[in-house]
């Protein structure tokens, strides 16, 4: 379970976002909806330990995240969280399998790579360079890298943001299917995809947008 309490994040442009307390239950899928700048991605980054909140706490399965050092947060993220980025965060010159095997630097077991790629329908692209893949295929590679380590939590920051609706919908379906039994939190602008998730959260209501500090 992920629980946020009194979360607040300040930015360099002297704005801040205050979050209402949230609880994400184990094994459920959540879609975070909301206008740009309302703090959806920031929340994901704080849960993942990439950003630190100015105040408040994030508790994941009983572990308090804000008290962890950056090294501990990195270790937690590599072991427990699968993060799918909007811009994929792949090395274009490397092959699909090398982009997954990058996790081996942290001794992550990637032996399920073939199985995951197969379930996403891109096993035949395994040895192709990422730069030669389509947008949908790249997003699938990013999903494969996030789930190959069998994480407890999957965070997806606008996973369909760079894709057209048809491909985006197919990607979300696959993501939901492959994330069964895990906690999935996905940020998206597209309300039409809400039907695939267990729960939809309107982030405009959670934060009320940015405020000046």
């Amino acid at each position: 379970m992920i629980k946020t309490t009194n979360l607040s994040k300040h930015f360099q442009n002297e704005t801040a976002i205050d979050y209402r307390d949230l609880v994400f239950e184990d094994g459920k899928s959540y879609m975070l909806l909301g206008a740009s700048g309302c703090g959806k991605s920031t929340l994901l980054n704080m849960i993942a330990g990439i950003l630190s909140p100015e105040s408040g706490s994030i508790e994941i399965n009983g572990e308090e995240m804000s008290s962890k050092s950056q090294k501990e947060k990195d270790k937690f993220r590599i072991n427990k969280i699968g993060y799918i980025f909007q811009d994929f965060k792949l090395i274009p010159e490397m092959t699909v399998i090398d982009n997954i095997n990058i996790l081996k630097l942290e001794r992550v077991d990637t032996s399920a790579a073939d199985e995951v790629l197969d379930s996403l329908g891109i096993l035949d692209k395994k040895n192709k360079k990422v730069k030669h893949l389509s947008g949908g295929e790249r997003q699938r590679v990013a999903i494969a890298r996030a789930i190959v380590k069998k994480p407890d939590i999957i965070l997806a920051d606008e996973p369909t943001g760079n894709l057209n609706f048809a491909i985006g919908e197919a990607v979300i379906k696959q993501l939901i299917e492959i994330s069964k039994g895990k906690t999935l939190i996905a940020v998206t602008h597209d309300e039409r995809l809400g039907k695939y998730f267990d729960c939809t959260i309107d982030m405009n209501e959670v934060t009320g947008g940015r405020r000046d500090v």
Partner: peptide, 13 residues
């Protein structure tokens, strides 16, 4: 930056 975001520690990088 990419490696850090996916959780590779700075010592490994």
């Amino acid at each position: 930056s990419l490696m850090r975001l996916i959780g590779i520690g700075m010592s490994k990088i």
